[in-house]
């Protein structure tokens, strides 16, 4: 099973094993990963599953759709080149062992 590591701003990391095809958002919400809300259930409509993907995985990610792009402009934490919506990234063999950072909730 591929794994996802969610790293919190505190440095605390959670590794989760998930089935292929599971989105990062669904994996986080199902396992109670702090800082990922996923309010709209994965339709790229609410921007509450914002994550930062570590650069070494960048070229294995699916392209950013127009829907995701416009929603990333509405994230609460700052958007960077590493920003993605967790609901739009589904686990594949290529992404196995992916590491992502959860946005900071510090002022």
């Amino acid at each position: 099973m591929p794994t996802i590591t969610f790293t919190q701003p505190t440095g605390e990391a959670t590794e989760i094993a998930v089935a292929e095809g599971t989105s990062l958002m669904r994996a986080a919400v199902t396992n109670g990963v702090e800082g990922i809300v996923g309010e709209c259930g994965g339709q790229a409509m609410c921007a509450t599953c914002h994550i930062y993907v570590r650069p070494e995985f960048a070229d294995q990610l699916p392209p950013i759709s127009d829907d995701e792009d416009e929603m990333l402009d509405c994230t609460t934490a700052e958007r960077t080149d590493a920003s993605r919506l967790g609901c739009q990234v589904k686990m594949t063999d290529q992404l196995s062992s992916i590491v992502v950072d959860v946005p900071s909730d510090q002022e």
């Binding site: 402009d73 609460t76 934490a77 700052e78 080149d81 946005p103 909730d105």
Partner: peptide, 26 residues
């Protein structure tokens, strides 16, 4: 997390341009 190359787009609703802010509490 560096914001050096952050896209300069603005959210049309909040007017936010990517100021670091607290994320929604879980």
């Amino acid at each position: 997390m560096s914001a050096t190359n952050a896209p300069a787009a603005t959210c049309p609703f909040s007017g936010d341009t990517g100021t670091p802010a607290p994320s929604s509490e879980n």
